[in-house]
Simulated assay, not measured.
Amino acid sequence: MPIKFSGWEACAEKTKHLQPGQAPKRSHGYTMYHGTHKNTAPTIISSGFRPSAGGTLGPGVYCSRDINKAMSYPGLCGPNERVVLQLRVRVGKVKKIDPQSLHLMTTWQQQGYDTAWLPSSMGRMEEDCVWDPKRLAVVGIAHCTDSGLKTSLENLIKQQGTGAALGQSGPAGSKCAGCGMHIADKHALEKCWSCKKDICAFMHKHACVKS
């Protein structure tokens, strides 16, 4: 009798650093950075990102694989006021912005893309713009000159638990019986069509074999 397989496995390279000029692969997770003011960092960690209304790549959350790019933001404050957040970004469907796609530079979201990637060129460091803030999770503090604040922010990241690590917005709440995430809103559970086990669409992996 043939073996039938049912299920899925999510693919995410949790600590993968992209090299300069290397295109991100669809649906993978990568390490990137986001620069913000030290007063804003706690809110981002505890409540998630608020997408910008516009920018070079249109509306979305801006980040970069180049920490030097992130360390230059925000522009109108001193270096000691800046904090660089280390992120895990699930890029989804990526649109590379090159000379042939400049017409999509600020409208890529409307074409079904999750992330826009603007490669480095002519002295400009690369940057990415992510449409859905839930695709970004703060996993560490890459730069902070105030050691006390850095410790406080790192503790705040730990307090967010599984929810923050998986890109959930808001503080950790109850656990989903299917995927184990800390969630604010209940996930709907379904029966696996093969083994009839209760499963959640947010589970990292589910597999069953039946002869």
Rank of each mutant, 00 (worst) to 15 (best):
K196D: 15
H187A: 07
R90F: 06
P42S: 09
S46N: 06
S147W: 06
K95Q: 12
I44W: 00
T31M: 03
E190S: 15
R135E: 02
Q111T: 10
S147V: 11
L166Q: 13
G167M: 03
A53Q: 11
K210D: 12
A23S: 13
Q160I: 10
Y73D: 01
P2V: 13
I157D: 01
K175G: 04
D114V: 04
L76F: 09
Q109N: 09
T56K: 12
C63N: 03
Q109V: 07
H143S: 14
P119V: 08
G78Y: 01
C144W: 02
G29I: 00
P51S: 06
H28I: 03
Q159S: 15
R50V: 14
M125F: 05
Y33E: 01
E13R: 02
A70E: 00
T151K: 13
A12K: 08
Y62K: 00
Q100G: 03
H28G: 15
P99Q: 08
Q86A: 01
V61Q: 02
N39G: 05
A177Q: 15
L166A: 07
K16R: 15
D98W: 03
K191T: 10
S121D: 12
K69C: 06
R26N: 10
C208Y: 10
A70P: 02
Q19M: 12
K205D: 09
T145C: 07
G54K: 04
T106V: 15
K150E: 04
K186H: 11
L57D: 06
G92S: 06
R90K: 05
G21M: 08
S27C: 08
T107A: 09
A164T: 11
C129F: 01
W108E: 03
A165C: 05
P171S: 12
L156D: 02
L76T: 11
S46G: 04
F202R: 09
G167D: 05
K134C: 09
E154T: 10
R50K: 14
S152F: 09
V83I: 04
E9G: 02
C11S: 12
L166C: 11
A10N: 14
P59I: 11
H182S: 12
I183M: 11
C63M: 03
N155V: 00
Y113W: 10
G170N: 07
D132Q: 06
Q22H: 07
M1E: 13
G170I: 05
K96H: 10
L118H: 07
A164S: 15
H182V: 00
R124Q: 14
D132H: 08
R65D: 02
K197P: 02
G48R: 05
C195I: 04
M71Q: 11
T106E: 15
H37D: 14
D114A: 07
G173D: 05
P74T: 03
L18C: 07
H182G: 13
I183R: 14
V94R: 08
G180T: 09
V209Y: 12
K4V: 15
S6I: 04
Q19V: 04
P2S: 13
D185H: 14
H103R: 09
